[in-house]
Design a protein around this nucleic acid. Sequence first.
DNA 1: GTCTATATACCGATAGAC
DNA 2: GTCTATCGGTATATAGAC
Lengths: 188, 188
Amino acid sequence: MGAATTRAQIVEAADRLFYRNGFDHTSFADIAATVGLSRGNFYYHFKSKDHILGAVIEARVAERREWLRQWEAEEPEPARRIERFIELVLTNREQIQSHGCPVGTLTTELAKLEHPMLGQAACVFTAFRTWLAEQFTLLGQPEQADELAMHVLAFSQGVAVMANAFGDQAFIAREVDRMRDWLRTYER
Amino acid sequence: MGAATTRAQIVEAADRLFYRNGFDHTSFADIAATVGLSRGNFYYHFKSKDHILGAVIEARVAERREWLRQWEAEEPEPARRIERFIELVLTNREQIQSHGCPVGTLTTELAKLEHPMLGQAACVFTAFRTWLAEQFTLLGQPEQADELAMHVLAFSQGVAVMANAFGDQAFIAREVDRMRDWLRTYER
DNA sequence: GTCTATATACCGATAGAC
DNA sequence: GTCTATCGGTATATAGAC
């Protein structure tokens, strides 16, 4: 098994474990048990735990950019593209109920740790933010585009935190309906 | 200095540190340095770290209930009472920018730790939820009261997560304005 | 009620054999 | 490229002197 494959396995396992158990709470032993490697061998692939975090964030940004590319290809209407983002919390409602939003829970944790990579983690939000603002500009709202993009992002985070705190999935569907109605007021 | 005072000091220091640095990331040494006690002496006042967490949650619930009592006393109109809650994120915007919402960040962390006290921590939300629902009932929305209460809570959490991730205070004021406008549609 | 000393476990990270 | 063994640090928690 080559280095590239092992490295990718480490990143994939770390991504999942950071999401489910948190970054600080995830140990090398946890990742090692998942991948099937010994603890000491990690340092051949990564210089430190923070470097693994960097690779995980990079992978998440790349994955989200791919989602955006697909939504653009599948939906010609900007309003439908924004709706695709809104529907994310519905599609992933089971995981959100158990572990919250992968992006929001990571930035929240890194802020508490005063971790220097908080800015990097926020870039995952920025990818959505920029893209959503572009869609609102296409919807004829160029001046408020960024504000509306932030509003949609805040919606997703509010829903995720509350669904996670109460373990309530049903709540998500109601909030998505409410958000769809709101979005409709901006359609031409 | 009696036991009751020392205990209260421990709870107060732990409350602040759990908020600023997270529960798991806060050690007895951190609390000890703040209160001015030795590590070993903690176990005279609390059986374990989880028992300190329990006391912190209890103190937070009590403090929030006191806020609600005051808002009820000061504002006869239910809409103004709800607005007082909405304004919380504006009043505490500096701390939210740095450390997020004390309630939401704790439930998020405890969910990742699969900590048995997640349900207890969610009770702080429940205190607000029940009270907000009462106000919406007074506003003439008894059927949707709980749904509207959850919507207001989700707003506060969405704003807190995004302001914390981007370190952006200005964003909070815009979202509060938006929420005030929304609330106005329910006033009679 | 508060202290020091310590038990026990786990953490991230390193060294060196193969 | 993967392994074992281990270092140094820190964590929660306990024991016992004062």
